[in-house]
Amino acid sequence: MNVYVTMATAERVLRQLRRDPRTLALVLLVPPLLLTLFRYVFDGSQMTFDRIGGPLVGIFPFTMMFVVTSIAMLRERTSGTLERLMTTPLAKLDLLLGYALAFAAVAVAQAGIACGVAFALLGLHVQGSVVVVIGLAVMNAVLGMATGLFTSAFARSEFQAVQFLPAVVFPQLLLCGLLAPRVHMAHVLYIASFAFPLTWAYDALSHAVAGTGSAKIVRDSAILGGVIVAALALGATTLRRRTP
């Protein structure tokens, strides 16, 4: 691994994103718009908005980065640039960390804007620390990115890559506890929910929003960190120098 090559890759990915202002605008503006929508859907119940809106701020980056990364990496595979890079001294980790750095930077901006709008304009109320919520949002973005990198290996086309969103992300959204408390779920689902990273992401966010259980936030973050490392390692195994 080479820091210089990693940074060059991160810079290149950011340049590509900058050339695509529409995607950038979607990534940065859709979360605050959806939050606004939520705010007025729950117009009569500020408490519900507080309970769901806070964690949502941290979960948007996960879904967005999942899609953006899986398509970016799929393009890298299908355009031949990946094959070309695999004949250069670039280490697989340089490529993965380059993507991770670039998208983490976008995630900071995304989470920052979403939080700014939610707290300043929509009156979202958070008992805990706003900084912790933003930090968790960035972590979820990196998690989404790592998962997207890995799943992109199983997509042959952009159509397929997009379909991984409902297949991989929606079940996690349903089971993570955001929509209904996990303890109220069918027992099998409750048990299964422990296996999904988004469950831990939501758990950490809900504690951060409620201002309770900083020990749990640390535990959840550690689990998420482990999942990120594992997903990146799995992603690295799907980047083959030699292909059939």
Binding site: R12, Q16, R84, T88, P89
Partner: peptide
């Protein structure tokens, strides 16, 4: 060893110079 794939391996959303500078940095 330098390799040119049959289909151009170029980032279409970067300029010519940005493409070359990136590969130069990767190759050292």
């Amino acid at each position: 060893v330098g390799y040119v794939t049959q289909a151009p391996a170029v980032y279409l959303d970067l300029t010519v110079a940005e493409n070359l500078r990136y590969f130069a940095r990767v190759l050292g």
